[in-house]
């Protein structure tokens, strides 16, 4: 058995394209998921019975069904209802929805972690909930949200590989495509594993760095 580096070099272009698409898909899905997640968390906390139940059902459904099954569901079932979308679009939707469910729980947990007295003091001063959320609650939970969102970002990068099964041309799909032509699974799977590994390591290093540099800002402001 030999490791043929030439296979990797010969196919660097599709690998680079796939890698770029993986990064792109995740970079778009994460913020969309987060915005939806904040909305869902607020609905679940303050939406009244109907909206809170809806948000809870959405979150629980997405968290309790495998991502691959969700992807198939969207990919094969949407056309049944006349909605024909490209694999890439289905991939975006699936990943953003998935991210939103997890982000919702992160944000909800974070808001609940702030003592009730903070919100009450805000109300007692005559502030509205929007101001309390923006000026009092969210700034206090950044230190809590940052590390958990790193895990979410890494989770998304890993889950995005699943999109290859519906032919979204991301890294894993390109890898399988190359292997289909070159019959060199060892080299190609090794290189994409390294690429994923490097990417997730980069994300966690970056946020560790951020955490360390924001630490004085995030906690010294609390406790001195």
């Amino acid at each position: 058995m030999q490791f043929d580096v030439a296979v990797i070099l010969d196919n660097w272009q599709p690998l680079a394209d796939g890698f770029a698409r993986t990064i792109g898909i995740c970079t778009v899905s994460l913020p969309i998921g987060f915005i939806l997640g904040v909305a869902l968390a607020l609905l679940r906390l303050h939406g009244g019975l109907v909206f809170a139940t809806f948000a809870a059902a959405y979150v629980e459904l997405l968290r309790n069904i495998p991502f691959l099954t969700q992807v198939f569901l969207l990919y094969f079932v949407l056309p049944e209802f006349g909605l024909r979308l490209s694999p890439l679009v289905v991939g975006f939707i699936a990943l953003s929805a998935y991210a939103s469910a997890y982000a919702a729980e992160i944000v909800r947990g974070a808001i609940l972690s702030v003592p009730a007295g903070q919100t009450e003091a805000g109300y007692a001063l005559g502030l509205g909930y929007a101001t309390i959320l923006r000026r009092i609650l969210l700034p206090q939970v950044l230190g809590y949200i940052l590390p958990t969102s790193t895990n979410l970002a890494i989770g998304l990068i890993k889950e995005s590989a699943v999109l290859s099964v519906i032919t979204v041309p991301e890294l894993t799909y390109e890898a399988q495509d190359i292997i289909g032509r070159t019959f060199s699974p060892v080299e190609i799977f090794t290189i994409i594993a390294l690429l994923y590994w490097g990417l997730t390591a980069l994300v966690s290093t970056l946020t560790k760095w951020l955490e360390i540099h924001l630490q004085p800002y995030l906690t010294a402001r609390r406790t001195g």
Partner: peptide, 21 residues
């Protein structure tokens, strides 16, 4: 409710100052 709260100041047992400000 808001208009009333503006006219009323409240001081709590555990201060409830905003720690990040």
């Amino acid at each position: 409710v808001q208009a009333t709260r503006r006219e009323i100041g409240m001081v709590f047992q555990n201060f409830n100052l905003f720690p990040h400000m």
